[in-house]
Design a protein around this nucleic acid. Structure first.
Length: 420
RNA sequence: CGGAGUGUAGCGCAGUCUGGUAGCGCACCUGGUUUGGGACCAGGGGGUCGAAGGUUCGAGUCCUUUCACUCCGACCA
């Protein structure tokens, strides 16, 4: 993409209403835009690209683990919610409305009922199990108090997966597989995270684990062991217990809940009469698991963990672009030629590259560098006066280190740094 | 839902106490000078002051009502 053709409204001033770094920076760098409605944001081009990058990582790992992507309507009939009693249980967080025929509907905050309905209409035999179906779709929760930008919005992008099994044992196997899959996803996204024991809350079910992105600004308090891998949300910890089962000390820290996996059992399948025929020709309710990842919340989490006073520092797999080619003087034909050439070469190699070709008189070199730092693209290639010696400057966003590289070597150096 | 604030140009704000022509900075447009770290000069466009009602010769400003948004708390797949 060319910067001159993209809608990237960066600003110098910090929005007054934003508190968290991620909220401030995503607004300032032009990823998202406030709409005037609480907890509702426009995703501008950069935000949309980043969201798709994160979504892609989530999808790839789930598909590798054998999950089936589907797409459910955001609008669901309230009748489904009444089958499980959650129409009442969910309360005002469940946004309700009527269609022209006076039928009751909701904007989906989660989809256990809808997905059980899908499967009970389709799966009739133990031979079709196990099955894991998921979607990555917008959810709406009429939160009591939306806040912190993408961290707790009312409308948000969530991956919700549901697995169906013949037995508790097989469901537990899938639960373990999902835990491993989530670890791969969070690792690929470059996040520092902790898997903790958690409360099942309104979803119900037996065991649950949360994936916490570690950040001081996190809304959850978790206890982690200094000796072993153990961690738990403070909700499920005995208040007096400062010792881990292994003998280590429990230390308190903060996390952002970005993923949550549950062992559900038959909590939903039984009341909804979602049953299959087993080997003995008897009907049994599906044994289920459910697994969520807050995709849009991950964007906030990545920035909470990776930023400095100058702006965002996206991780390799989350960055909207991996390389920003800054043409210092866009009116200088030689510089623009070198910039364009590098742009095309890198694109051909599959690198996501942005060409800052802005040539208007207000956008000088300083503006371009500041925008690069604010947006948080992994590397900048500065095409400037150095081209007379056959060189360009390479800037690493993470530590702002600079190095002079021969134009002919840039491609190889970039490919090595991005490990592509 | 309790507590505390804020609504004035796209954004950030002043003006409100003490009523009298709607302001500033950034951004935007035009021209010129600049050109490797958010340039400078000159000119210009953009507002029913959140909404409704009231007091007054006159309301951004005073009174009443209402709505929205932010923060703290409670709540929370």
């Amino acid at each position: 993409m060319k910067f001159s053709r993209m809608l990237i409204p960066t600003t110098k001033e910090t929005p007054n209403d934003a508190v968290l770094a991620s909220h401030k920076l995503l607004l300032r760098a032009g990823f998202i835009q406030f709409t005037g409605g609480s907890g509702l944001y426009n995703f501008l081009p950069l935000g949309k690209i980043t969201l798709e990058k994160v979504r892609k990582v989530v999808k790839e790992e789930l598909d590798k683990a054998g999950c089936n992507e589907v797409h459910l309507p955001m609008v669901t009939s309230l009748k489904l919610w009444e089958e499980t009693g959650r129409a009442d249980k969910f309360g005002k967080e469940l946004l309700r409305f009527k269609d022209r025929h006076e039928n009751d509907f909701t904007l989906s905050p989660t989809n256990e009922e809808a997905m059980v309905n899908l499967v009970r209409q389709t799966v009739k035999s133990y031979k079709q199990l196990p099955l894991n179906v998921y979607q990555i779709n917008w959810k709406f929760r009429d939160e009591v108090r939306p806040r912190f930008g993408l961290m707790r919005g009312r409308e948000f992008l969530m991956k919700d997966a549901y697995s169906f099994h013949v037995s508790v044992e097989d469901m537990e196997r899938e639960f373990t597989l999902m835990e491993a899959t989530y670890k791969k996803i969070f690792t690929r996204l470059g996040l520092e995270f902790k898997v903790v024991e958690a409360d099942s809350g309104a979803i119900g079910g037996a065991g649950s684990k949360e994936f916490m992105v570690l950040a001081d600004s996190g809304e959850d308090t978790i206890m982690v062991c200094d000796q072993c891998d153990f961690g738990a949300n403070i909700e499920v910890i005995d208040e007096n217990s400062k010792k881990c089962a292994c003998g280590g000390e429990l230390r308190e820290t903060k996390g952002i809940e970005a993923g949550h996996i549950f062992q559900l059992g038959t909590t939903y399948s039984a009341p909804m009469k979602a049953e299959f025929l087993n080997e003995n020709q008897k009907l049994e309710p599906f044994v289920m698991g459910t697994y969520g990842i807050g995709v849009s919340r991950l964007l906030a989490g990545i920035i909470e963990q990776n930023h400095d006073e100058k702006g965002c520092i996206w991780t390799k797999e989350s960055a909207p672009f991996n390389v920003d080619i800054i043409v210092a003087k866009a009116k200088n034909k030689a510089q623009m030629e070198v910039g364009l050439k590098l742009y095309e070469t890198l694109q051909a190699k599959g690198v996501d590259v942005l060409l800052d070709d802005r040539a208007d008189k207000k956008t000088g070199f300083g503006v371009k560098v500041k925008d690069f730092e604010l947006i948080g693209i992994n590397y900048a290639i500065v095409v400037g006066n150095d081209i007379e010696e056959g060189n360009v400057e390479l800037i690493n966003r993470a530590d702002l280190s600079k190095e002079i590289v021969a134009i002919n070597d840039v491609e190889a150096v970039i490919m090595e740094k991005l490990a592509l």
